[in-house]
Protein backbone atom coordinates (compact mmCIF):
# COMPACT_ATOMS: atom_id res chain seq x y z
CA UNK A 1 0.00 0.00 0.00
CA UNK A 2 0.95 3.65 -0.28
CA UNK A 3 2.10 5.01 3.07
CA UNK A 4 1.62 8.65 3.98
CA UNK A 5 1.52 10.85 7.05
CA UNK A 6 -0.42 13.96 7.86
CA UNK A 7 1.37 17.25 7.37
CA UNK A 8 1.84 19.33 10.53
CA UNK A 9 -1.38 21.24 11.11
CA UNK A 10 0.60 24.49 11.00
CA UNK A 11 1.50 23.72 7.36
CA UNK A 12 -2.11 22.86 6.57
CA UNK A 13 -3.36 26.07 8.13
CA UNK A 14 -0.75 28.08 6.24
CA UNK A 15 -1.94 26.79 2.88
CA UNK A 16 -5.67 27.20 3.55
CA UNK A 17 -7.15 30.59 2.66
CA UNK A 18 -9.00 32.30 5.51
CA UNK A 19 -12.76 32.81 5.33
CA UNK A 20 -13.36 30.17 2.69
CA UNK A 21 -15.51 27.04 2.59
CA UNK A 22 -13.20 24.05 2.97
CA UNK A 23 -14.11 20.50 2.03
CA UNK A 24 -11.84 17.91 3.67
CA UNK A 25 -11.84 14.74 1.56
CA UNK A 26 -10.55 11.44 2.90
CA UNK A 27 -9.57 8.32 1.00
CA UNK A 28 -10.74 4.95 2.33
CA UNK A 29 -7.98 2.78 0.91
CA UNK A 30 -4.21 2.95 1.53
CA UNK A 31 -4.13 6.07 3.68
CA UNK A 32 -6.92 4.72 5.85
CA UNK A 33 -4.87 1.64 6.62
CA UNK A 34 -1.83 3.73 7.56
CA UNK A 35 -4.06 5.97 9.71
CA UNK A 36 -3.27 9.14 7.80
CA UNK A 37 -6.28 10.13 5.71
CA UNK A 38 -9.36 7.96 6.24
CA UNK A 39 -12.80 8.80 7.56
CA UNK A 40 -11.58 9.00 11.16
CA UNK A 41 -8.71 11.33 10.28
CA UNK A 42 -11.09 13.53 8.28
CA UNK A 43 -13.27 13.94 11.38
CA UNK A 44 -10.33 14.72 13.66
CA UNK A 45 -8.73 17.21 11.25
CA UNK A 46 -12.07 18.85 10.45
CA UNK A 47 -12.77 19.33 14.15
CA UNK A 48 -9.31 20.84 14.66
CA UNK A 49 -9.81 23.24 11.74
CA UNK A 50 -13.23 24.30 13.06
CA UNK A 51 -11.65 25.19 16.40
CA UNK A 52 -8.47 26.72 14.99
CA UNK A 53 -7.55 30.32 15.55
CA UNK A 54 -7.61 30.90 11.80
CA UNK A 55 -11.26 31.21 10.84
CA UNK A 56 -12.98 29.57 7.91
CA UNK A 57 -16.49 30.11 6.61
CA UNK A 58 -17.27 26.41 6.73
CA UNK A 59 -15.44 23.14 7.24
CA UNK A 60 -17.13 20.01 5.94
CA UNK A 61 -15.77 16.52 5.52
CA UNK A 62 -16.38 13.45 3.40
CA UNK A 63 -14.47 10.30 2.59
CA UNK A 64 -14.60 8.28 -0.62
CA UNK A 65 -13.41 4.81 -1.54
CA UNK A 66 -10.46 5.95 -3.66
CA UNK A 67 -9.39 9.39 -4.80
CA UNK A 68 -7.24 7.86 -7.54
CA UNK A 69 -10.34 6.48 -9.27
CA UNK A 70 -12.75 8.71 -11.16
CA UNK A 71 -15.87 6.67 -10.51
CA UNK A 72 -15.59 7.37 -6.80
CA UNK A 73 -14.70 11.03 -7.26
CA UNK A 74 -17.95 11.49 -9.20
CA UNK A 75 -19.83 10.74 -5.98
CA UNK A 76 -18.77 14.02 -4.39
CA UNK A 77 -19.23 16.48 -7.26
CA UNK A 78 -22.03 18.33 -5.45
CA UNK A 79 -20.03 18.68 -2.25
CA UNK A 80 -17.01 19.94 -4.15
CA UNK A 81 -19.18 22.41 -6.03
CA UNK A 82 -20.37 23.83 -2.70
CA UNK A 83 -16.80 24.37 -1.46
CA UNK A 84 -14.17 26.97 -2.32
CA UNK A 85 -11.18 24.77 -1.56
CA UNK A 86 -10.67 21.00 -1.40
CA UNK A 87 -8.25 19.69 1.21
CA UNK A 88 -7.37 16.20 0.09
CA UNK A 89 -6.24 13.61 2.60
CA UNK A 90 -5.18 11.20 -0.16
CA UNK A 91 -1.72 10.33 -1.42
CA UNK A 92 -0.17 12.46 -4.15
CA UNK A 93 -1.91 10.39 -6.83
CA UNK A 94 -5.31 11.11 -5.30
CA UNK A 95 -4.62 14.82 -4.92
CA UNK A 96 -3.62 15.09 -8.59
CA UNK A 97 -6.62 13.08 -9.73
CA UNK A 98 -8.91 15.38 -7.75
CA UNK A 99 -7.21 18.39 -9.36
CA UNK A 100 -7.87 16.91 -12.81
CA UNK A 101 -11.53 16.36 -11.99
CA UNK A 102 -12.07 19.80 -10.51
CA UNK A 103 -9.89 22.17 -12.56
CA UNK A 104 -11.67 25.26 -11.22
CA UNK A 105 -11.03 24.37 -7.55
CA UNK A 106 -7.80 24.56 -5.61
CA UNK A 107 -7.04 21.04 -4.36
CA UNK A 108 -4.51 21.11 -1.54
CA UNK A 109 -2.59 18.19 0.01
CA UNK A 110 -3.06 17.46 3.71
CA UNK A 111 -0.62 14.53 3.64
CA UNK A 112 2.99 13.91 2.77
CA UNK A 113 3.17 10.75 0.66
CA UNK A 114 6.12 8.66 1.79
CA UNK A 115 6.48 5.26 0.13
CA UNK A 116 5.03 1.93 -0.97
CA UNK A 117 5.31 -0.38 1.97
CA UNK A 118 3.88 -2.88 4.36
CA UNK A 119 2.29 -2.89 7.77
CA UNK A 120 4.94 -4.30 10.13
CA UNK A 121 2.97 -3.97 13.36
CA UNK A 122 0.84 -1.48 15.25
CA UNK A 123 1.90 1.98 14.11
CA UNK A 124 4.87 0.67 12.12
CA UNK A 125 5.16 0.76 8.33
CA UNK A 126 8.20 0.02 6.22
CA UNK A 127 9.14 0.70 2.62
CA UNK A 128 9.20 -2.45 0.52
CA UNK A 129 9.09 -1.32 -3.09
CA UNK A 130 10.53 1.58 -5.09
CA UNK A 131 8.34 0.91 -8.11
CA UNK A 132 11.46 0.70 -10.25
CA UNK A 133 9.66 -1.01 -13.13
CA UNK A 134 12.14 -3.89 -13.36
CA UNK A 135 11.41 -6.38 -10.58
CA UNK A 136 14.23 -8.76 -9.61
CA UNK A 137 12.56 -10.41 -6.61
CA UNK A 138 12.71 -13.78 -8.36
CA UNK A 139 16.51 -13.57 -8.22
CA UNK A 140 16.81 -12.22 -4.70
CA UNK A 141 14.54 -14.53 -2.75
CA UNK A 142 11.70 -12.05 -2.47
CA UNK A 143 13.79 -9.30 -0.85
CA UNK A 144 14.29 -6.15 -2.91
CA UNK A 145 17.93 -5.01 -3.04
CA UNK A 146 16.98 -1.61 -4.44
CA UNK A 147 14.70 -0.89 -1.51
CA UNK A 148 16.21 -2.85 1.36
CA UNK A 149 19.88 -2.06 0.63
CA UNK A 150 20.65 1.51 1.74
CA UNK A 151 22.82 1.96 -1.34
CA UNK A 152 20.46 0.17 -3.70
CA UNK A 153 23.29 -2.11 -4.77
CA UNK A 154 22.61 -4.81 -7.30
CA UNK A 155 25.58 -6.87 -6.06
CA UNK A 156 26.08 -7.11 -2.34
CA UNK A 157 26.69 -7.11 0.47
CA UNK A 158 29.20 -4.29 0.52
CA UNK A 159 31.99 -3.71 3.05
CA UNK A 160 29.63 -1.76 5.25
CA UNK A 161 27.73 -4.87 6.27
CA UNK A 162 28.64 -6.20 9.71
CA UNK A 163 26.83 -8.73 11.87
CA UNK A 164 23.86 -8.48 9.57
CA UNK A 165 23.53 -4.74 10.02
CA UNK A 166 24.10 -1.84 7.65
CA UNK A 167 26.77 0.77 8.35
CA UNK A 168 24.20 3.49 7.69
CA UNK A 169 22.49 2.59 10.98
CA UNK A 170 24.25 -0.35 12.66
CA UNK A 171 21.82 -0.36 15.57
CA UNK A 172 18.54 -0.55 13.73
CA UNK A 173 19.00 -1.22 10.04
CA UNK A 174 19.32 -4.72 8.62
CA UNK A 175 21.69 -5.18 5.72
CA UNK A 176 19.41 -5.90 2.79
CA UNK A 177 21.96 -8.12 1.09
CA UNK A 178 22.53 -10.11 4.28
CA UNK A 179 18.78 -10.72 4.37
CA UNK A 180 18.95 -11.89 0.76
CA UNK A 181 21.92 -14.16 1.54
CA UNK A 182 20.22 -15.72 4.58
CA UNK A 183 16.99 -16.28 2.73
CA UNK A 184 18.71 -17.81 -0.31
CA UNK A 185 20.68 -20.04 2.07
CA UNK A 186 17.52 -21.27 3.75
CA UNK A 187 16.06 -22.01 0.31
CA UNK A 188 19.25 -23.84 -0.70
CA UNK A 189 19.69 -21.38 -3.56
CA UNK A 190 22.99 -19.73 -2.70
CA UNK A 191 24.10 -20.22 -6.30
CA UNK A 192 21.84 -17.25 -7.08
CA UNK A 193 24.36 -15.04 -5.26
CA UNK A 194 27.12 -15.84 -7.75
CA UNK A 195 26.17 -14.04 -10.99
CA UNK A 196 27.34 -10.45 -11.29
CA UNK A 197 24.25 -8.44 -12.00
CA UNK A 198 24.39 -5.52 -14.45
CA UNK A 199 23.59 -2.03 -13.20
CA UNK A 200 19.94 -1.18 -12.76
CA UNK A 201 18.17 0.01 -15.90
CA UNK A 202 16.70 3.16 -14.47
CA UNK A 203 15.01 4.02 -17.77
CA UNK A 204 12.15 1.81 -16.54
CA UNK A 205 11.90 3.81 -13.33
CA UNK A 206 10.96 7.49 -13.01
CA UNK A 207 12.51 8.79 -16.18
CA UNK A 208 11.14 10.92 -18.98
CA UNK A 209 7.95 11.99 -17.30
CA UNK A 210 5.18 10.01 -15.58
CA UNK A 211 5.16 6.31 -16.31
CA UNK A 212 2.03 4.85 -17.86
CA UNK A 213 0.61 1.37 -18.02
CA UNK A 214 -1.73 0.74 -20.93
CA UNK A 215 -3.42 -2.62 -21.40
CA UNK A 216 -5.23 -2.73 -24.68
CA UNK A 217 -6.93 -6.02 -23.76
CA UNK A 218 -9.01 -4.31 -21.10
CA UNK A 219 -9.52 -0.96 -22.81
CA UNK A 220 -12.99 -0.06 -24.13
Amino acid sequence: MIVAEQKPITDILDMLPEGKRILVVGCDTCVTVCLAGGEKEVKVLSAALRMAKKQFDEISGVSIERQCDGEFIDEIREQVAAADVVLSMACGAGVQMMSDFFPDKPVLPALNTLFMGSNEGAGYWMERCLGCGDCVLDLTAGICPRTRCSKGLMNGPCGGSENGKCEVDPENLDCGWNLIYQRLKSLNRLDAMMPIRPPQDWSKSHDGGPRKLIREDVQL
Partner: peptide
Protein backbone atom coordinates in the same frame (compact mmCIF):
# COMPACT_ATOMS: atom_id res chain seq x y z
CA UNK B 1 -2.54 19.44 17.33
CA UNK B 2 -4.78 21.80 19.32
CA UNK B 3 -1.80 23.86 20.42
CA UNK B 4 -0.37 24.17 16.92
CA UNK B 5 -3.80 25.08 15.53
CA UNK B 6 -4.02 27.89 18.06
CA UNK B 7 -7.21 26.53 19.64
CA UNK B 8 -8.17 28.74 22.56
Amino acid sequence: MLSEAGVE
